[in-house]
Design a protein around this nucleic acid. Structure first.
Lengths: 110, 110
DNA sequence: GCATCATATTCGAATATTCACAAGAGGCCA
DNA sequence: TGGCCTCTTGTGAATATTCGAATATGATGC
């Protein structure tokens, strides 16, 4: 990582990975996949978004290799690829909760 | 979290947090702050961006409460607020490395 | 073949992000 | 006070993201 070009490229990829997580719908998808694979139709039903919209978000998660897609007949099952993604997800969730708690204290203090 | 309105709001905040991480420059800033606080000028020198640009990125990290800013005379020192942020950062970095390794294998295999 | 169901992709409009530059704001010291 | 240093913020242009609607693809069964 001493080559600055390679370093910049790596950080760009890292940022793309974060970007893939930077949308509420995609976070909800990840939460849904936490307990195992789900078909697109199930996600549509459970999350209540347009099918094309979910498909677009799933494509983004696929491109960043955060999920795998397995075809079974005409239905496609999505699954999380790496448990570390949910670990990172949970860490940030804790950070957020902390921020909200401190925000409440600040709101009271000011 | 059973109230759907509250759930959506929480996921929106979570997404905003991820969004704050979704830029190479901001990831580089976090990496720089890993070993302790840094003045804005130091970051400018080490990262080689316009000072106003770094200030804009620092503002985004501040708004999401990922960093703290402490004034000392006329210089401002930034620091990471929560070590879990770097933990999440590192987890995603590992995921990325894994993806790159598998990508190489795929590139060879195809 | 054709119809149907499940999923994916394309398109365009609305919105958000990012950068550089210019201008503002606060602290320090003569 | 005035000048200088450090940092922040407003503006606008270029670019990227997001959504719904429409359309395309792909598998299944008749």
């Amino acid at each position: 990582m001493s080559d600055p070009g390679r370093r910049d490229e790596f950080y760009a990829l890292h940022a793309h990975l974060c970007r893939a997580l930077a949308h509420p719908t995609r976070l909800l998808i990840i939460e849904e996949l936490r307990d195992g694979p789900r078909a697109v139709g199930e996600l549509v039903e459970r999350l209540g978004h347009r099918q094309s919209n979910l498909s677009q978000h799933l494509a983004i998660l696929r491109e960043q290799r955060l999920v795998t897609a397995r075809r079974e007949g005409s239905t496609v099952y999505y699954a999380l690829r790496d448990p570390r993604v949910t670990q990172a997800f949970d860490l940030l969730r804790e950070v957020l909760r902390q921020v909200l708690r401190e925000g409440e204290r600040l709101a009271v203090a000011n």
